[in-house]
Design a protein around this nucleic acid. Structure first.
Lengths: 206, 206
DNA sequence: TTGGGCCAAGCAAGCGCTTTTTATGCCTCA
DNA sequence: TGAGGCATAAAAAGCGCTTGCTTGGCCCAA
């Protein structure tokens, strides 16, 4: 008779107690801090106050932990980008919203975003996690479409190489993951504002 | 006649043969591809057609290999940035030259630049390699000075947060390391041109 | 009394590195 | 001229340690 079970499911080792979720969040932090491969299960165990072997009562493999963290994050992320990109706002507005959404994510889910952005090499080489790299490709396409729309409508310059421009924008957002601290000198609003301003208007005064 | 005069005299194991240099370049490639820590000495040995243990005839430690690769790259890099930044050209010109220099490096020394950009976490936590992170800090300061000059002279907008702007520019350059391929669709000149144009002029047409 | 949750112990594989031995030239000098 | 000695380069074997993961059993709350 479960009391207040949020993750209730028929599968074993998942019925109650919250301990599993607790461990998962500890792992999430460590994966984000050190990278998935560099974070060892012994470290995760230590941080959870448990022996590393005991983790395998809750999870079958280390990969499972990662998958359980990343999968429910990546797919909605992709979908949300799609929603914004296909709204009927003007291209510059959609672009701004996408930047804003991407950076807001950095505040709400910094760890997961770090993992997904920093461990791209690992995801790409892993068969099991190919869906992450595929999501990245999809996201690229979505951004690209918005840029194209803007150029077609004369709202973006037509003399820029769009592929390179797109790479720049993505690297810009992903790079922010590595230096932005929510408790640091700048608010995320300042960062959003500066990035949007610089991206749209450039360094040179008008 | 001294007995143990043999080893480690004026030119230990370095007089000729080129083998050492050959191995060093193999290591450089692997460090760049997989990251320093992820590249094992057994892989380096395999790629060199040698057993891993035999590497230690040429090098004392794995760290030594990295140091021998990175040190003679980082210090001239820093110095070159200084030279450009302190020339008497106008700030926008200096900035453009610095971008150009940074990206040209990506063609001439892609491996070393990848190592220095991607393994920053490792360098930062290693006492021995602290000079790499220090060089990065110095480079930051140099860029920042140029940005400030431009703002003072009214050549750059004064309504942008310069710290955030600087982070963006650096991430932009470092991010390029991860996707640019000299044999790919774009020439480095195209990339330089697009990055400079976007950075100076922004997406919005004038 | 049952089973969820953990500990204790350990396995195989891989890590950076060390030591000892072997193979192959090249140089010197009787 | 050719044998001994040295330098170079690598193999072979194994060290101590860490990795992800397994197994068997204990404890205690329901």
């Amino acid at each position: 008779m479960p009391k207040e079970v949020a993750t209730a499911e028929r599968s074993p080792t998942r019925r109650k107690s919250g301990r599993r979720e607790e461990i998962l969040q500890i792992a999430r932090t460590l994966f984000a801090e050190k990278g998935f491969e560099a974070a060892s299960i012994r470290e995760i165990g230590d941080a959870a106050g448990i022996l590393s072997g005991s983790l395998y009562y809750h999870f079958a493999t280390k990969d499972d932990m990662l998958d359980e963290l990343v999968r429910p994050f990546v797919l909605p992320l992709l979908k949300q980008y799609e929603v914004i990109a296909h709204s009927d706002a003007e291209a510059p507005d959609r672009l701004r919203q996408m930047i804003q959404f991407g950076l807001q994510n950095l505040v709400q889910e910094p760890d997961l975003l770090k993992i997904v952005a920093n461990d791209r090499k690992f995801f790409a080489k892993s068969e099991r996690f190919s869906y992450v790299e595929e999501a990245w490709q999809d996201i690229f396409q979505i951004w690209y479409g918005v840029l194209q729309d803007g150029v077609r409508q004369g709202q973006f310059r037509s003399d820029l190489n769009l592929h390179i421009t797109l790479r720049m924008i993505i690297e810009l957002l992903n790079g922010t993951v590595d230096w932005f601290r929510p408790d640091g000198r700048f608010t995320i609003e300042q960062v959003i504002d500066t990035q949007v301003e610089l991206l749209f208007g450039g360094l040179t005064p008008r």
